[in-house]
Amino acid sequence: MAGQSMTSSAVPAGPQEEIFGFTKAQFVALLVMFAALVVAPFFLYPVFLMKLLCFAIFACAFNLLIGYVGLTSFGHAAYFGIGGYIAAHSAKVWGLTPELSIIIGALLAGVQGAIFGWLAIRRQGIYFAMITLALAQMIYFFCLQAPFTGGEDGIQAVPRGHLFGFISLAPDMTMYWFVAAVFVACFLLIHRIVHSPFGQVLKAIRENEPRTTSLGYRTDDYKLVAFILSATLAGVAGGTKSLVFGIATLTDVHWSMSGEVLLMTLVGGLGTVFGPMIGAAVIVAMQNYLAEMGAWVTVIQGVIFIACVLAFRRGIVGEIGNLLRVRL
């Protein structure tokens, strides 16, 4: 791939003191994040926070692929949406518990990711982006026609159910703690993946794929596994979202959703640990507070896209990290 790579860190590499694989600065940021997660529901509307966390999971999953492997999927809405539909169907029609519904949704999203990833990694760069977009559009049309998705209406009135069969998730606060727990689990899992030997190979592929191949790694296998992991976690995000709002609709599988998650990750900072979360917070907050402006929200999103590409390629967290000379 020609030119500057998608993510370049300005921070010098070298031995740094690490706490559970986090650098000191990252560990401080992690503690701040935990504190924010605990305090936030007492000040902000829990449903808004849950929406934010679901998109944060989605953006983190997406970042695993674009930020750490350098693969730009333009069709992640497909995994998010399928995760949502399957989880909603499991909870509503089969009456499964919420955790099982989300797991089933995530697994199917992962299977779908395995098939689509296997197809898409045959081509590189922009072709990869176009293929993932086209495959996602295929899923959109599938969801429009398939009987179980309810077409234009979507799956409505999905019960939140009882966690493990006995903790009712109907109260917003209980649901919030559940969603927060799911988010933290996904966040730490992604961190673990990125800092494993497997993750090191992923980063090597991002920096220089031919060289990684010449070192004896089957890069396609690594890319595929990363793709499956990312799709599965996107499915977790979609499933959780459909349980929070009790609805799974075509919006979740539409291409504009793929664009949104890309925007969130870009705004927060590609390849940063906390970027996707911050990006999700910014975009979800913007959509919430500017909702009455109608189609102007799309225009503003477009402007942010352009500003990020032309001026702030590191994203918010990347720029802050650059300013403080730490890696966040």
């Binding site: 030119g3 730009t72 922009i126 982006a129 664009g259 189609a295 799309t298 477009g302 990020c308 590409v309």
Partner: peptide, 18 residues
């Protein structure tokens, strides 16, 4: 990277459509 071109023109299309 070529992908920035895709992202930029995606943003442009959002603006025009909006």
């Amino acid at each position: 990277d070529h992908l920035y071109g895709l992202l930029l023109t995606f943003g442009i299309s959002l603006i025009i459509e909006g």
